[in-house]
Design a protein around this nucleic acid. Sequence first.
DNA 1: TTGTAAGCGTTATCAT
DNA 2: ATGATAACGCTTACAA
Lengths: 363, 363
Amino acid sequence: MKDVAAAAGVAQSTVSRILNRAPGRVTITVETRERVEATVRELGYRPHPGARALRGASTMLLGAIVRDITDPFNAGVIETLTIAAKERGYGVVLGSAGARADEALATVLEARQCDAIVLLGDLRGEPRMIADLRRAEVPVVAVWYGSHHPFPTVSVDNRAGVREALTHLSSLGHRRIAFVGGGSHGDIRQRLAAYKEYLASAEIAPTRGYVRQGPNTIIDGGLALSALLALPRPPTAILAATDVVAMGLIHAAYEQAVAVPEQLSIVGFDDIPLAAATAPSLTTVKMPTAEMITWAVELAVGAAGSPFHAAGDPPRIVFQPKLIVRRSTAEASPTTHAKPPSPAPRTRSSSRAVRAAIRRPRA
Amino acid sequence: MKDVAAAAGVAQSTVSRILNRAPGRVTITVETRERVEATVRELGYRPHPGARALRGASTMLLGAIVRDITDPFNAGVIETLTIAAKERGYGVVLGSAGARADEALATVLEARQCDAIVLLGDLRGEPRMIADLRRAEVPVVAVWYGSHHPFPTVSVDNRAGVREALTHLSSLGHRRIAFVGGGSHGDIRQRLAAYKEYLASAEIAPTRGYVRQGPNTIIDGGLALSALLALPRPPTAILAATDVVAMGLIHAAYEQAVAVPEQLSIVGFDDIPLAAATAPSLTTVKMPTAEMITWAVELAVGAAGSPFHAAGDPPRIVFQPKLIVRRSTAEASPTTHAKPPSPAPRTRSSSRAVRAAIRRPRA
DNA sequence: TTGTAAGCGTTATCAT
DNA sequence: ATGATAACGCTTACAA
């Protein structure tokens, strides 16, 4: 900038003023402005963000802390966040919590290099991090997070989503509905609770063994499915806590020659992009991801503007999910109860189920 | 830091020295060091990165420019990158190119906020960006990128991968092999070229209509498959340019009641995590993503150390992919040629194929 | 071993 | 309308 000023024959402060299009009452000779701008272009001058930050200016960076980017859902969220942030002129610094969220914090926050932090998913397993964040001067917004913290929150009504999904299954005649969860994170816990609650309200007695928990991976699907099918009265439908879990179940069902949806209906949660492309495509509860993230960014940059937390309770915005019915759910036919794997019935029922699948019209 | 110095009763420079564990000959009284460190902890002091950057210190940030984070493959890459970078003490700033890569550049580089930039995937569609990057003082490393640029490169031997895949199909008896691509990006072009080359070397005459191109989406799978099956002599196997494309094909095959792999073998490329969880699981060419990214980070931070590009040609590292055989490929049975969809043969061949599937042992 | 002081690139305040 | 100058938080010679 010094060079620019020298080359253009003006003072540094003039250059600064021109570049910043100083707000309010400014008056700069058109001639000067043009000369300076030309020089800037010619010299390929770029402002130094460090120096700006030093002067208290914003870094135009949003920190994102996410537990596990491997999860396609989170990956999608990061993408959405990147886009939403860019629309507001912000970049995104990624702090993958991965093994230890504390480190992520160190990366993103400790270096208070960003104007605000967005917490993605349940990080309650990291109390130290939360404590750190509380006393940090950076505004924090939590998305898909529990409620036991002092940050503004954007979340989804898991209860309503589960209710919709189970109502759908119910209306298809399903009474034996299992739940396969992944991990013990906030949203999943809420979904499990809602599942139990719905069963109670629908006067369906809970069946022992119908709730399977495990890490959030695709791979667990196989084990969960085997366990469920080995039950004396196996379920005719499964509510998966997550689309990824549901995909694992579909894969496992294929491997075990259980026809979906003829023998077994499966419902997911999230509506990740791939959910429309599974075989069969997945009935799932759609998360209004884009809207949620847009709001989160709004809150974050809004908070980044005002130096300190406003008084009163932090805003807590709850979005409504929506059931998307695709091909992984169908009527519970009384004759197509899934059976524990034993050669004879498996072959018979499977081939029948498949014929049904073939009769189905094309998508 | 001033506060810390005051509270500890020492000079600012002393605090700085202690915090930076000054290299070379340092000598600081244990007593002083401990006092200062205690004060630092007590006051919860965090260094201001902006000020550091101002003094020419590194920002410990790696810029990542990616064309499309939606793609699960890229999402996985970002994750790997984040982890690899963290291991070297670096954070990752995400510059999703999205609509216009120029903007991404503006976000990430123009604000030369990071010590090095990693280009992920083919960004050759953005010549202006490349030009900008060339004259930028930030080191750039390109991964999965063509070769017409002056940056160090980490890439994969697409030719070898395609050869492996086609040899595999060949050995299963397939002669009618189609190629479904997505986009016209460097790697995909290379794969298509390798496909044609292999066909020529195997003395298989290319069949009109066997190469389908389209955007990289899952959705195109349906159209591509319909078009291929409508051919007078439809293929018995398809090489997909990408796992995502392959997943689209599997989905489409399911919808159109074409049994995979009995009637149609499908091979993907990339080995994204989900490839193991499709129904059926996907035979694919595995990308050594982790190694590639590790090397890219190595190159990037190495280059970040030395101020300017070393003389001579930039390093170009090429990795070898590896075929992973799963369940989406099988022998080309002479009687199971896929036919253009017409009720009678479809039902017959499908149910036979399915019986075969059921006989298969569990995974 | 520790303190003093200069300077990094900006912006904001004042003076002209 | 523009120029001079202080200050931001930190590193690093250099001085003590």
